[in-house]
């Protein structure tokens, strides 16, 4: 049994807890949260041992690994303390408020030799995994241009403020929403390392951006557009998509449907010249416990297997999330010019 503790039982934290609770190889040894009502309910109905001080929890419960799902501004301090104690860490995205903090944690994790993972769940979505495989095998030739997009109805009117509306806590559309798209592009194509121009626009929020538009370049020489808006109520829920144009074809994919066009006759197995359509249902492996998408269960299962040293722990590492933080900061800095 892998002994797991969790810090921050908010929306993502509860989702993680539920999936962890159902995992056959996991024992939940502690939950830390500052909300009295959450702690009360978890203790009473789930029987979890709860804490309000995460260091006390770590000391008493002696977990093999800790899930960190608190607002981004706390990631750096908490993860650092956990690494000091040689504990395996899964943390929510985005990794840190700035790439200096995340860079330091990458080094610390390496030194500690612990398993480290960040919750960019899109990498466990069947369609995006297939996009990555196609691009890596040069199936559509050399990548010339891409478009990474995400739209959804998070902030659709002027309303009360939470940590998501505070820039110093890691709020805003760039950090919270666009980070998914940036991370996906970094992983599928190559890290975004230049930003020619960017616009961070507030629509309903007072202090943070509600949309992000940027013209960027990757280390492989491809250029692209990032277009993200979390104030778009024409979407029922978050919809993330990538369009990738190559010299030999084109890929258009979201989390449900993958469309690929091949120009020539050199084709990967299972594809034909012209348009091909594949659905996530064909590209998804069954999970043992389903909560809100196979990818959420799959990323946790991957982490648990990493802790048990049953896989390589090379998906969503601190290192990849540090690169994403670096790309985020490029876009942020460019918008100020």
């Amino acid at each position: 049994m892998v002994k797991i503790a969790l810090i921050g039982a908010g929306k993502m934290g509860l989702s993680h807890l539920s999936i962890l609770g159902a995992h056959p190889d996991v024992q939940i040894v502690g939950v830390c949260d500052t909300s009295k009502i959450i702690v009360d309910v978890l203790e009473r109905y789930s029987g979890f041992k709860c804490y309000s001080d995460y260091l006390k929890m770590v000391e008493e419960a002696k977990p093999d690994a800790v899930f960190v799902s608190v607002p981004t501004k706390y990631h750096y301090t908490m993860v650092k303390e956990l690494l000091k104690r040689n504990i395996n860490v899964f943390t929510e995205k985005p990794f840190c408020l700035n790439p200096n903090e995340s860079g330091e944690l990458v080094l610390l994790a390496k030194k500690a030799g612990v398993v480290n993972q960040v919750g960019y769940h899109n990498k466990f979505v069947g369609t995006f995994k297939e996009v990555k495989r196609l691009v890596a095998s040069s199936a559509i030739g050399e990548i010339t241009h891409f478009q990474g997009e995400a739209y959804g109805p998070v902030v659709i009117k002027k309303k009360s403020e939470t940590w998501r509306s505070d820039p110093s806590e890691g709020g805003g559309c760039l950090m919270d929403y666009a980070s998914h798209v940036i991370d996906l592009i970094n992983d599928i194509i190559s890290p975004i390392e230049s930003c020619k121009s960017s616009i961070l626009k507030s629509i309903y929020s007072k202090n943070v951006d509600d949309s992000v538009y940027a013209l960027v370049g990757t280390s492989s020489g491809a250029t692209g557009i990032i277009s993200v808006n979390w104030s778009d109520e024409t979407y029922r829920k978050m919809s993330t998509s990538v369009t990738i144009i190559g010299t030999e074809g084109k890929i258009v994919s979201d989390a449900n449907e993958l469309k690929v066009y091949f120009k020539g006759d050199v084709l990967p197995k299972g594809y034909s010249k012209g348009w091909n359509v594949k659905y996530v249902t064909d590209l998804t492996e069954e999970v043992d416990f389903y909560l809100r998408g196979e990818e959420y269960s799959a990323q946790i299962d991957y982490f648990i297997k990493s802790v048990k040293r049953e896989n390589k722990n090379n998906v969503n590492t601190f290192d990849s999330a540090w690169k994403t933080d670096t790309s985020i900061s490029l876009i942020k800095n460019q918008s100020r010019i």
Partner: peptide
Amino acid sequence: VMTDLLLGLGMDEF
């Protein structure tokens, strides 16, 4: 979503 959340959390009483 609610059934399975409660199921995973072991909150059978709900």
